[in-house]
Design a protein around this nucleic acid. Structure first.
Length: 172
DNA sequence: GCCAACGTTGGC
DNA sequence: GCCAACGTTGGC
């Protein structure tokens, strides 16, 4: 379901069959940190309860897509590692779990409202802090840096991806 | 803890 | 279908 008043817009570009797309995915380290991902190798990206973010996972992500693993709502927000999409989207089990903070009484197993992908670690990196990102003109267009942005999953352009990788390489 | 920004809900 | 009220996000 789209937000009321939102227009159905066609994709901005046609995704080539074997092309890779890039994403930034926010996680609160208290919930799942980069060290948790290092330990587990892969995590189900459960708990997203926003339609736009869900749609990115459900409709646009492909296995192998690049992910900037971003720590949010913490003392030092920023990109903490690189990861990749490692599954197609599937139903989020937490929406049916009454004990879960992500329980959604309005969702039913016949028509699961929330879906998610799995995300696999590529590497933990030096933290590229939000403050450092804001200083870089080549990152100025990143969605995560835009005023008022609250989306937990945002697309990253190939140029932005390369720029982040270059900064991480330099920090090494 | 504050608060701006934005999404969602629900009365009408 | 409008829109005010409310809840959440997340940086600071």
């Amino acid at each position: 379901m789209m937000a009321r008043g939102a227009r159905q817009t066609p994709p901005l570009h046609i995704r080539l069959a074997h092309s890779v797309a890039y994403w930034l995915m926010k996680s609160e380290p208290g919930e799942c940190s980069i060290d948790d991902l290092v330990r587990l190798g892969q995590v189900p990206w459960v708990g997203v309860r926003n339609y736009q973010s869900r749609n990115f996972m459900r409709d646009e992500m492909r296995i192998g897509d690049g992910v900037l693993f971003y720590h949010s709502s913490c003392p030092e927000p920023g990109v903490a590692g690189l990861a990749e999409v490692s599954s197609a989207a599937y139903a989020d089990a937490t929406q049916f779990d009454r004990q879960s903070p992500y329980f959604d009484a309005k969702s039913s197993p016949d028509a699961p409202r929330w879906q998610h992908v799995d995300v696999r670690l590529v590497e933990k990196t030096e933290l590229l802090s939000l403050a450092a990102m804001r200083e870089r003109p080549e990152l100025a267009t990143m969605r995560v840096l835009q005023r008022g942005n609250r989306l937990s999953i945002t697309p990253v352009t190939p140029a932005q991806w390369r720029a982040v990788k270059a900064l991480l390489a330099r920090a090494r």
